[in-house]
Structures are given as structure tokens and as C-alpha cells.
């Protein structure tokens, strides 16, 4: 990898200053995407600003109907959290499916959603549960956060501090993982929330999206048969060596049905 300047910061202010002072700086959370990307020379930041030394950015709290996950909380901690398992079991389950144990010990929720890889899992949970992303500048609703392939509503230098998830009545996540990488070929997050049914699909398109036709059908009748006649067009879905766009379109229906069955 190309060389860079490394700085480990101990506060959000210091992170901001280091970013502003850098020619082409980047923040590093767990580094599970950034380091492999830099090794392949697909990224060559002038400065890497390591957020691993900032106190108070990791941790989970459950307060009434809200689960709060600090931006630097690793996937293994979300998966193992008794509080999350009780309040939103689907969220703990989703975290347990990311990568492998070693990756889950380092990768963070903040790093994952800031990167917005189309095949990542967390965007499904954020949009499926109508979560809120808290940053150093503002609060962003999940529906507005993920804007396009590897693009988010974050501005230059803006840092995620935490994500808050309202607990749903019931929810489930099912994914068809790439057997080698464990990234989602298609992931479906289905939730019955106090504001209605949400169906969020990750892996299939350039970024996470909702399927409103399925949400409406499930509002009238919450069972797998209700969406049997609904198909998502393959136009605009991802097609690559792992799966064609048509196959991903088919998998959406299958994964949503399985998630509905998991909701019981």
C-alpha cells in the first residue's frame, strides 16, 4: 500500500482538526474495509485518522423502546448484547451474520454505514427499523442517509457518533450470503413497527431500498403468501459474477418470504 501519515486521535474535535489539516484525509474506524482497499491501492489517502482512541464512541444502551449503538461498537458486541437480543433480536442476529468472527471483532457499525457498501448488512437494519444516524453535525433519518452506491448524506469530515433504533413489534432479517465473502447477495429486513410495515432490501441494488408494494400487501395481510405475486424488476439491480440482476430480483422475493416466516 502507498504510505500515508497516521494519526490516532482521542476526541471528536481532534479528529475534525486532523481531517481539516490533511490534504486528502480519511477516517478509520475498524479498518476492515479501508485497510484491504488501501492494500489493493484502490485508495491512497494522504492521512489516516484512527478513531480507535476516542472514548465514549462505543457501547450499547437500551432505554425503554430504543436501542442506542455507539458508532465504534463492533459487530461482535452487537451480536452478543443481551440488551439487543431482548429488544431487537433481528438486529443482534444481523450483526452475527456479518463477515466472520475475526472481522466482527474489529468492524464497526459506524464504519460500515459510512462506507455504504451495497452488499453490507447494516443498511437493511437501519432502513428496516427506521433508525436515526447521529453525527457531529445533525441527526439523519435512515431513509435519507443512504443515497447511492458507496454514497451517504454525510458531508466531508462529518462523523457518525451513534445510531438509535426504535424497537419494532417484531422483525427479522434473512440474507443469501456470498459463500466465500459472507457479503449479502440479497438481504431482506422485514419489520412491523408502530408506524407500519417496512421491507428493506440490501445487497440487490446500488444501495438499500424499500419495496413499498410489499409493505402495502403485508399491511393488509402479514403472511408470506401476500407477496407471492409481487416481483421487483431487475432493472437497476446489481449484476456481477456472483449473481445476475434477474437472479437477485428473484432472491428478493425468496428472502422477504423467509423473513416474514421468521416473524411468526
Amino acid at each position: 500500500m502507498y504510505n500515508f501519515k497516521y494519526k490516532k486521535v482521542s476526541s471528536l474535535d481532534e479528529a475534525q482538526q486532523a481531517f481539516d489539516a490533511a490534504d486528502d484525509g480519511t477516517f478509520m474506524a475498524g479498518g476492515m474495509t479501508l485497510i484491504p482497499t488501501m492494500k489493493q491501492r484502490l485508495a491512497m489517502p494522504s492521512d489516516v485518522i484512527d478513531l480507535g482512541g476516542i472514548d465514549g464512541l462505543s457501547g450499547i444502551s437500551v432505554d425503554g423502546g430504543t436501542v442506542t449503538v455507539g458508532a465504534m461498537t463492533c459487530h461482535a458486541d452487537v451480536a452478543a448484547s443481551e440488551g439487543v437480543q431482548k429488544a431487537i433480536p433481528a438486529l443482534a442476529h444481523l450483526a452475527s451474520l456479518i463477515g466472520d468472527p475475526q472481522v466482527r471483532n474489529r468492524g464497526t457499525i459506524g464504519g460500515s454505514i459510512a462506507n455504504n457498501d451495497p452488499a453490507s448488512d447494516y443498511p437493511g437494519a437501519l432502513v428496516g427499523l427506521s433508525a436515526t444516524v447521529h453525527t457531529t453535525k445533525k441527526k439523519i433519518a435512515a431513509d435519507d442517509f443512504f443515497t447511492d452506491l458507496f454514497e451517504t448524506a454525510l458531508e466531508e469530515g462529518e462523523l457518525i457518533t451513534k445510531v438509535t433504533f426504535p424497537a419494532p413489534k417484531i422483525a427479522a432479517y434473512r440474507k443469501f450470503p456470498n459463500p466465500a465473502s459472507r457479503y449479502s447477495v440479497v438481504g431482506a429486513f422485514v419489520a412491523k413497527t408502530k408506524d407500519g410495515i417496512r421491507v428493506a432490501i440490501t445487497g440487490a441494488g446500488p444501495t438499500v431500498f424499500r419495496v413499498s408494494e410489499m409493505e402495502q400487501a403485508l399491511t393488509s395481510s402479514f403472511n408470506a403468501d401476500a407477496i407471492s405475486n409481487i416481483s421487483v424488476p431487475a432493472d437497476n439491480l446489481n449484476g456481477d459474477l456472483h449473481a445476475t440482476a434477474e437472479y437477485r430480483a428473484h432472491l428478493i422475493g425468496v428472502m422477504v418470504k423467509r423473513a416474514i416466516s421468521d416473524c411468526g
Binding site: Y6, M32, V103, R106
Partner: peptide, 10 residues
């Protein structure tokens, strides 16, 4: 953790 995906600095 995977030592090939960590910087020595970390």
C-alpha cells in the same frame, strides 16, 4: 483478529 488487516500502529 486478523493481523494482515491491522496496521502495526493500531
Amino acid at each position: 483478529v486478523k493481523a494482515c488487516t491491522l496496521l502495526a500502529a493500531q
